[in-house]
Amino acid sequence: MPAGRGGAKRWLTRRRIIQAVLVLGLAYVAIPLISELPDVVGALRDARPEWLIVAAAATFGGFVCAAVALRACAGLAISYRDGIEMQVAATFTGTATPASVGSLALGVQFLVAHGQPVSIATAVIGLQNIVQFLVHVVLLTVLALVGGSSVDVLKDAPSGWTLLVILGVALAVVGIALGVRRIRDALAEVWQHRGREAAEHLTTLVRSPRRLTASVLGAAGGTISSAVTLWAVLIAVDAGSHPVTAAFATMVGATLASAAPTPGGIGAVEAALVASLTALGINPGTALAATFGYRIIATWIPTCLGWFFYNRLQRRGMI
């Protein structure tokens, strides 16, 4: 074999190919945002630095909370340092892949490296996402009941009849889908291989008050930290103090980020945040600056750091 071909083969390892794909994915989603940079940089240049530091600290707190929740759901004595590094690295992989697929896969690899079989590791990551979803819904409901009047969050909500029609259509689609044998068989197989184990882990978690409390507090802390980050950025760009508004906006953004087909929810999250902030009374220009400032602190800086931790975890055999 020629030396050049052998050298290329040694360089094109699986690890380098995966990293190249992830970096190309990041470049693909980041390039369209460059046109917005002048306005954002201008607004952030005049921002109050002490509140930007508060926002960064809140973002770090979210990674700590996520590590606590993962440790509780897995029931393993995972080092908090390793857990936090994995959560930051998951920002890198999650932003480079659609619908957070990369972050979920990284979590499974991390647990497998700590001795859990793939099936159990997958169930644990699924359990963590179930807890996060339930806590997210509860917090959003509580926020709507307690602080909804202060921002008039339901002023543009559809009528009751509209919601009933939407619910009816959704139930009809589900019923038709379940009537197809192939779909039923696929769902049964997913339940057999994944759902049953996730349900067993959920039962075990519920029976352990200490682990259940840690997982719920970790999930809640992650949601609250995002709200605090946006709230601090709003203050930094002189948009005023709007904690309830920040909480609503980040919860809507998080929901879209998990459902959007774009990598890391790029585009969908920014649009949702700007629309939410303006609908809740923030000036459009200020809302745009706050949104991009929030995304830089909560997503793009952790994504850059995530690349470093991703490589570090690989070198240490943690993923």
Rank of each mutant, 00 (worst) to 15 (best):
A74S: 15
R196G: 03
G267K: 12
P49M: 08
A298L: 07
A199G: 06
L111A: 09
A74W: 11
Y28I: 06
A198M: 15
P38M: 11
V165Q: 12
A56P: 02
A249Y: 01
G75Q: 07
T95Q: 11
I297P: 02
A72F: 04
V190E: 10
G175Q: 13
Q19V: 15
A56Q: 07
H193W: 11
R194K: 10
F92V: 05
A186S: 12
L143E: 15
A27T: 15
A214Q: 13
A249P: 00
A227K: 00
I319G: 02
P2G: 11
R45D: 13
S225D: 09
I301L: 14
P209Q: 03
R210S: 13
A113N: 03
P98R: 00
A3N: 07
L313M: 13
A254W: 00
T255G: 14
P49D: 12
V108P: 00
A186K: 13
A58T: 08
R196H: 11
R181M: 01
V174P: 06
I78K: 02
Q314K: 07
I224D: 12
G126F: 07
A275W: 04
I17K: 14
A220C: 05
G195D: 03
T303R: 03
A214Y: 03
A123E: 10
I166G: 08
F63H: 14
T223K: 00
L230Y: 06
V138L: 15
A247S: 10
L230H: 05
I282M: 14
N311F: 02
G126H: 05
A239L: 06
S100N: 14
G267T: 07
G147Q: 10
T223C: 00
E200G: 12
R315D: 09
S100D: 11
S150D: 07
A105E: 00
L163G: 04
Q87H: 13
A67D: 06
G317V: 04
V29H: 01
V135A: 11
I130D: 08
G6I: 12
I130P: 07
V137S: 09
Y294W: 08
L76A: 03
S276A: 14
G6M: 12
R184T: 06
V190I: 14
K155S: 12
Y294C: 07
A219P: 03
A66R: 08
I84Y: 04
G61D: 08
L145C: 09
A289G: 15
L178E: 09
W307N: 03
V252Q: 07
A247I: 01
W300H: 01
F309M: 06
R81L: 13
D39G: 09
L154I: 09
A236T: 03
A58Y: 01
W307D: 03
M318I: 13
I18Q: 14
S149Y: 08
I235G: 02
W161Y: 09
R210G: 06
F60T: 08
G107L: 08
L234I: 05
R14N: 10
A227N: 07
G25A: 00
A227I: 02
A214D: 11
